[in-house]
Structures are given as structure tokens and as C-alpha cells.
């Protein structure tokens, strides 16, 4: 019975569900994992790189983290081809706002624009919903550093720390325990990077992965200019260092 309503994105099933939209959300639960963390001095986005073949040319800087504007980035879980359409829209929105008001767009406005666009694909006929979720990270003077998650239905929500993609529920429950453990302080970036790697280690299928499987990004306050942020995607060497530290901690934790 439910099958009759499967093929159309815009028709409710008798149970009041939109199956295609739910399938799109489900598809992302199998995609590469992304972790987002707010830190005391910035914000972290960490994602899993799916290495499909040794022969594939490695990406130059990043394959999942995209700069939207000088104060905003996002990372992708799901179909990268669908995502690139939305990323174009987000960049366009950011620059149009800049053109009109000569100041950077508030983060929530970009998120809202993208989500409205995603929502339209769940309502108008003959179209397939976007098969991707995003983590948006950004800074604006109204609300400081912010982290948002979006999904194919067009819903979005703000978080302190969250996970999207494969095994996101186990990643989230790990974060629930480890982020601000015992009501402790919000981690700083160097602590946050280690935490993000630990989350990815939980969600990834295999253990003992090389640095090429991790894409670590942070955005932090620029010390020279107030209200300005700098972006950094960790190089392979830097990623290796973080991985080693995590490994060391894991080993010594076993001793005690």
C-alpha cells in the first residue's frame, strides 16, 4: 500500500508521511560522517573522507568543507553533486547581502535561505529532494560563533556539538558524554580537534585509519583584528599529529 506513495515526492501517504523525503534523509545516514563542535576560541568541523580508490587523485585542500564567505563555512554529508548546487546558492546569497548592506550576512540567514530552497523540492512535483545535509559553521556579531545542521526536508537546528552522516546517533551519544564532561568548560580548539577525531573513530567502520581519511577544519577568532575570523584546514602532517595525540591518550587511559 505504502509503495503507491513512494514514487511521488509531493504526495502524502495515508499515514501522513512523505516517503521520498524520508528516504533522502535515510540516504544521508549512510554517507560520510561530519562532526561539528563549538569551542571556547572558535569552531571545528571534522569529516570522514571516503577513499574509494588508490588511483583517484587526492583532493588538494578539502573535499567536504566549503568556504561560503569569509565568516562562514559548511561541510557536506550526502551527494556532493547535489550539495554543489546549494553551495552556489549559499555563496550567491552571501554576496547579494554584502552588495545590499555592505556587511557580512548573519549566519542564520544563509541557513534559512538554503533550507527554504531545499523545502521547495519537497513540495513542487516532478523534482527529487536534495540528497544532502550540511553543517554550517560561522561567526556574526549578533550571536557569535554558531553551528547549524540542515536536512533534505528543509529543517534546520542550532547546536553546541552535533554529528551528521553514518552512525550519527552513536557519535551524538558519545558527544553527550564527552562534550563539557561533568559540566566542565567548553573545550578549546586543540582539545576540540582531539574530541572530534575520537567521535569520528567511533562512527567509522574500520579502526586505525590513516590521516588521509580525516578532514579537520577549524575557524577561530583572529587575534589581530577584533570580530574577524581565520579559517584553516589541517594539513596531513597536522592531522597526523592530532591522531597521534589521540592514540597516546587512548593508550594511557587503558593503563589507569
Amino acid at each position: 500500500m505504502a509503495r503507491r506513495y513512494d514514487s511521488s515526492t509531493t504526495t502524502f501517504s495515508p499515514e501522513g508521511r512523505l516517503h521520498q523525503v524520508e528516504y533522502a534523509i535515510e540516504a544521508i545516514n549512510n554517507a560520510g560522517t561530519c562532526v561539528g563542535l563549538k569551542c571556547s576560541d572558535g569552531i571545528i568541523l571534522a569529516s570522514e573522507r571516503k577513499v574509494t580508490s588508490k588511483l583517484l587523485a587526492p583532493v588538494k585542500v578539502s573535499e567536504k568543507t566549503y568556504k561560503i564567505d569569509s565568516h562562514c563555512v559548511l561541510s557536506v554529508a550526502g551527494l556532493s553533486s547535489d550539495a554543489s548546487i546549494l553551495i552556489n546558492q549559499a555563496r550567491l546569497r552571501a554576496q547579494r547581502y554584502m552588495f545590499q548592506y555592505q556587511e557580512p550576512i548573519p549566519i542564520e540567514q544563509i541557513v534559512e535561505t538554503i533550507c527554504n530552497y531545499k523545502q521547495s523540492y519537497t513540495q513542487y512535483g516532478g523534482l527529487r529532494p536534495f540528497g544532502c545535509s550540511f553543517l554550517f559553521a560561522g561567526y556574526d556579531p549578533h550571536f557569535g560563533m554558531q553551528l547549524y545542521q540542515t536536512d533534505p526536508s528543509g529543517n534546520y537546528s542550532g547546536w553546541q556539538a552535533t554529528v551528521i552522516g553514518a552512525n550519527n546517533s552513536s557519535g551524538k551519544s558519545f558527544l553527550k558524554n564527552e562534550y563539557q564532561k561533568d559540566d566542565g568548560p567548553v573545550p578549546d580548539i586543540s582539545e576540540g580537534l582531539k574530541l572530534a577525531v575520537k567521535v569520528l573513530n567511533k562512527t567509522m567502520d574500520s579502526t586505525g585509519n590513516g590521516a588521509e581519511k580525516y578532514e579537520l577544519f577549524y575557524m577561530k577568532f583572529n587575534e589581530e583584528e577584533e570580530g574577524d575570523v581565520e579559517h584553516h584546514v589541517l594539513t596531513e602532517e597536522e592531522t597526523k599529529k592530532v591522531l597521534e595525540e589521540v592514540e597516546k591518550e587512548g593508550a594511557s587511559a587503558g593503563d589507569s
Binding site: P141, H142, F143, M145, F221, E226, G227
Partner: peptide, 9 residues
Amino acid sequence: SSKKTVNGT
């Protein structure tokens, strides 16, 4: 202020 809040404060 030119910067109303920094990191939520």
C-alpha cells in the same frame, strides 16, 4: 557597539 556580542556574551 560595533560588535554586539562575542561568542554569545
